[in-house]
Simulated scan of single mutants.
Amino acid sequence: MAEAMGLRERKKQQTAMRIYRAAVALFAEHGFDEVSVQQIADAAEVSKMTVFNYFGSKEDLVFRPMEEHFADAARAVRERGPGESAVDAVRRQFLELVETRDPSVGLHGEPFTRQVRRIVVETPVLMERAFVAAQKGTRELAAILAEETGDMMLATVAAAMLSAARNALIEENHRRLDSGETPDAVAADAAERAHEAFALVEKGLKGYGVRA
């Protein structure tokens, strides 16, 4: 029975991945708005109902595999150990993702991953969903900090700063790859840049941007 369940799960994962890759290929070639769910189903050799069974909406075909990462910072803070600050936890997690060149922090040079990002950036409805998901992740982080500290206002400021630091680092990695730098070149100083960014958060903005 266990072997049968394992085989069934593997087949489901394979079907989901086939649908996902077929959708991304069509979106990249024709544009997100120009592709129908039926076209995706035909390309993946499944029924339209099967597509909806695996992915609740057309937008989910792009976001489902990546959406959990919008809550990465909240997860790092929630799971941090005794004596570890929120900044330390988010920085530690980010550096671990840098070390493994995780696609979620923009350090994977695999063409398919880059293709998915281009689809999102070039599609307003997907950019809006990305913004909403990112804001949800920041609110989740703020709620965790507020529950621990009892101060929602300061928790919101802290969450916004931590999220902004992560987002800026990720965008820089993507920007450098888009400009033609190799993944190795970007990864070479990604950890150093992360230390600089989180140090700025840790110190606060005192003395930053003082006009001469």
Rank of each mutant, 00 (worst) to 15 (best):
A164Q: 05
M161H: 09
E29D: 10
E99N: 08
L141Q: 03
A133G: 04
S36M: 08
L26D: 09
K12F: 10
L126Y: 00
G106L: 00
E9P: 00
M5L: 15
V132T: 15
E148T: 14
F70R: 02
V62G: 01
A212N: 12
D42L: 08
A130D: 05
R175M: 04
E79M: 07
G150Y: 08
A4F: 04
A130G: 04
E202Q: 07
R8I: 13
R8Y: 11
D42P: 14
E140K: 13
A197Q: 02
D42W: 12
R166D: 03
E140P: 00
L61K: 01
I170Y: 01
A89K: 11
T50Y: 14
A28D: 11
E96W: 13
A142P: 05
R166C: 05
H195K: 11
F198K: 02
L154C: 15
N173R: 04
E59M: 12
L169C: 05
A28V: 04
G137W: 00
A43R: 11
A22Y: 02
P183C: 03
V90H: 13
L61N: 00
R166N: 05
I170F: 05
Q135C: 05
E128H: 13
Y54M: 11
K206L: 14
E148C: 07
P82V: 10
R78W: 10
A146H: 02
L205W: 05
E84R: 14
D42F: 07
L7H: 08
S179G: 10
S179R: 12
G31L: 03
A155L: 09
T156S: 15
P103I: 08
R8T: 13
A130N: 09
A158G: 08
T15V: 11
V37L: 09
E29I: 06
V157P: 02
T156I: 09
K206M: 09
G6T: 13
E59W: 12
R117Q: 05
Q135E: 14
S179C: 12
A188L: 13
V24P: 00
L95K: 08
